[in-house]
Design a protein around this nucleic acid. Structure first.
Length: 417
DNA sequence: AATCATAGCAACCGCATTAGG
DNA sequence: ACCTAATGCGGTTGCTATGAT
């Protein structure tokens, strides 16, 4: 497949945008929308290629972009999501609303990466340098992937175990609760499940006003139609998308429950033997740090790995709660579990992964202190495994929990259901 | 004051994927 | 099923500002 020519065309301007050009582009999009980017430049009277216009808009002119200094909370979110996702900037950006992937990427490359390196942390593997050196040079990336894979796999195994346990409970509750329908769901069976999970969520979190709204979450993923429950729970009413065009007129609920029935005809859920999946998450009150409230200086000056660990791998005892098993169900229907980090780039995998992330981010049930609070003044409570770091499993769990906690408490309005 | 080095960031490049005919 | 345009995304480049010598 040949690549379409773009900026090589003669007569098209390249380089920095002038205020006049910005004004033209802005005015045009405000009036007409961007429509076809290729056609836009001529219509807007710009001597630019469509791609350049699109980039300028998405990275700079879009009105919902937050610019300026990154807060500590944002920095920590980026670091942890990077540990989780690697250099998948767009995925990271979806959890930092109002920040563009380009900005995050730049910030990582110019600030965070150096900072971690300075602290003796390998920015690729997110492990202490000594560990990373074991797989030096070209192998460090592979090591990072393996690390990510191991973490994913660990979470998945835990989820699977839970799935087995809960699926049995479900079949019981299904039979018992057909018919109750306080949720706007297309199926009464799913409704009863929702209620189960709603109660479960409510029992493990602070009581939150419960609304609900059902969508086909997989379809929503396919369409890029993210719903962000965090924003609602954070008191932000409108749902903004990190991309320019998505918006939702309705508020997402503090607990977003999603069901989809399995047609059994293939697709993502094709091999799923469960009759339906549901995503139940909750987000509760969060603590938001003001920008610049805390600095990294403690970490930097001490160059102390233990402190880093305490900050990033916050000690928490909560486990993956509701949601993971539902995700696993969809995962198993969606071909295979990703065998490598890169393999996630296929659409199904991306869907699964995003769902997993969102579940991770959305399933916190009560331990939602921010890292700013916990990691910032390090060691309020002794860390994972009570100081004995030999237990890989505990470390690993705490690592993921810390990510979960971080983003749940993040002010960044991460997209959720 | 001039020169060089470095940091920061906007913008570009090119591959991958998706959508539509 | 195939082709092509459009779009998404991550890596890289190059310009500008700032600091050091």
């Amino acid at each position: 497949m040949g690549r379409s020519p773009c900026c090589d065309k003669v007569g098209l301007k390249k380089g920095p945008w002038t205020p006049e050009e910005d004004q033209k582009l802005l005015a045009y999009i405000e009036e007409h929308g961007h429509g076809s980017w290729r056609a836009l430049p001529s219509k807007a009277g710009l001597q630019r290629c469509g791609k350049s216009c699109r980039l300028r808009w998405t990275n700079y002119l879009r009105p919902d972009i937050k610019r300026g200094k990154f807060s500590l909370q944002e920095e920590q979110t980026i670091i942890q999501l990077h540990a989780l996702l690697g250099n998948r900037w767009s995925a990271i950006a979806t959890h930092l609303s109002k920040r563009t992937d380009n900005e995050i990427k730049n910030y990582w490359n110019t600030h965070l990466k150096k900072r971690l390196t300075k602290m003796g942390i390998d920015p690729i593997t997110h492990k202490p340098k000594n560990d990373a050196l074991l797989s030096s040079d070209g192998q460090s990336k592979t090591a990072a992937n393996l690390s990510h894979m191991a973490q994913w796999e660990s979470a998945r195994l835990e989820a699977e175990a839970r799935l087995v346990r809960e699926s049995k409970l479900r079949s019981h509750s299904l039979q018992n609760q057909l018919g109750s329908s306080t949720f706007a769901s297309s199926s009464s069976a799913s409704t009863s499940l929702l209620n189960n999970n709603k109660q479960e969520a409510a029992s493990t979190t602070e009581m939150v006003p419960i609304q609900s709204r059902s969508i086909d979450v997989l379809k929503a993923w396919n369409n890029g139609g993210w719903l962000k429950s965090n924003e609602v729970s954070n008191g932000v009413g409108d749902l903004e998308s990190p991309t320019s065009t998505l918006s939702f007129s309705e508020n997402a609920p503090p607990i977003m429950t999603t069901t989809t029935t399995n047609s059994g005809s293939g697709g993502i859920l094709g091999e799923n033997t469960m009759p339906m999946i549901e995503f139940v998450g909750s987000s509760s009150g969060c603590s938001v740090k003001e920008e610049g409230e805390q600095e990294w200086k403690g970490y930097e000056s001490s160059n102390n790995l233990a402190e880093y660990k305490d900050g990033i791998m916050e000690n928490s005892v909560n486990t993956f709660t509701c949601g993971l098993h539902e995700l696993t169900m969809s995962m198993e229907g969606a071909a295979t579990w990703p065998g490598s980090h890169e393999s996630l780039r296929t659409n199904d995998h991306a869907i699964v992964e995003e769902g997993f992330i969102n579940l991770l981010l959305n399933t916190n049930s009560g331990n939602h202190r921010s890292l700013s609070e916990c990691g910032g003044d390090s060691n309020n409570d002794e860390g994972s495994g009570n100081g004995s770091d030999g237990d890989f499993y505990e470390d690993n769990k705490n690592y993921w929990n810390s990510i979960l906690n971080l983003v749940n408490s993040s002010p960044s309005d991460s997209p959720m259901f």
